[in-house]
């Protein structure tokens, strides 16, 4: 009995402090790290203030920073719980994007506030992927014009100036901004990110547009599974997680759910 307890303890301590033992120093995993699965049952419960918690067996999940892992609504909690439930023998943290995003929002490792994040997003707009056009070859020039121009026109019609854009971003909460920033850095484009979050584009379309030049090169030089397909799937997974995170953690989605329940 005692031995099995000790064994359990050592298992719990290993997983990079995800289920932290209080005073442990925060330990951030590298992209490819895996840990042995140390739990059987995943459940969610509603804690104080209406927030949701994740339980692994009977232990509460914590962030790498040692905080209690809490999410604002049930949908996000279930999506995170599903990620933990889907792990087989080892925990593949690099495939648990929603968990990672929640950890980032909870721990805020870069210690920035909303205004700084909005300014960063606006600054990114100046170097947006869809604004950088090639001069040659002719086929790619045309491809970029045909594929990127409609999205650019759409965003111009919707947001008009940078000020309206800033105002729009101010309506986001900290969690949604964390998600938005993640999506922007994945797609390297504010325009594509916003078009997707406003449900104008699907994830597949946005990822394709973000990789337009690469797709063009693949057409003439061939596709390599371990590089191109690997990248595409990873980018899709990350982008989808980011968009979902923005929607699930923004105010409008809670209002939306209430409306639908009536």
């Amino acid at each position: 009995m005692l031995r099995s307890l000790v064994r359990l303890q050592s298992h719990v301590r290993k997983p990079l402090g995800k289920v932290c033992q209080g005073s442990q120093a925060p330990l951030y995993s590298t992209a490819a790290s895996e840990r042995r699965k140390f739990y059987q049952d995943v459940s969610i419960s509603q804690g104080e203030g209406g927030v949701f918690e994740i339980n692994l067996d009977r232990r509460k999940l914590k962030t790498p920073g040692g905080k209690l892992f809490t999410v604002p609504n049930e949908a996000l909690a279930i999506a995170v719980a599903t990620e933990w439930d889907a792990q087989r023998d080892t925990l593949k943290f690099y495939s648990m994007h929603l968990t990672t995003l929640c950890n980032t929002a909870l721990d805020n490792p870069t210690e920035r506030n909303k205004d700084q994040m909005i300014s960063a997003a606006l600054k990114f707009l100046e170097t947006d992927t869809v604004c950088y056009r090639v001069d040659e070859p002719h086929a790619l020039v045309e491809l970029q014009r045909n594929e990127w121009d409609p999205v650019l026109h759409w965003i111009e019609n919707r947001y008009n100036t940078k000020d309206t854009f800033r105002q729009h971003l101010k309506s986001y909460n900290f969690w949604s901004l964390t998600g938005l920033e993640f999506v922007i850095t994945q797609l390297k484009s504010v325009v594509l990110s916003l078009a997707m979050i406003d449900t104008h584009l699907s994830v597949e379309q946005a990822v394709l547009l973000s990789r337009l030049e690469e797709e063009y090169q693949i057409q003439s030089w061939g596709n390599v599974e371990w590089a191109h397909d690997y990248d595409t799937y990873e980018l899709r997974a990350r982008t989808a997680a980011g968009v979902l995170f923005v929607h699930l953690s923004s105010e409008s989605s809670t209002v939306k759910r209430k409306l639908m329940q009536d």
């Binding site: 597949e204 989808a240 979902l244 699930l248």
Partner: peptide, 8 residues
């Protein structure tokens, strides 16, 4: 959202 989740 459901489409996005399927994609994820």
């Amino acid at each position: 959202d459901s489409h996005t989740y399927l994609c994820l």
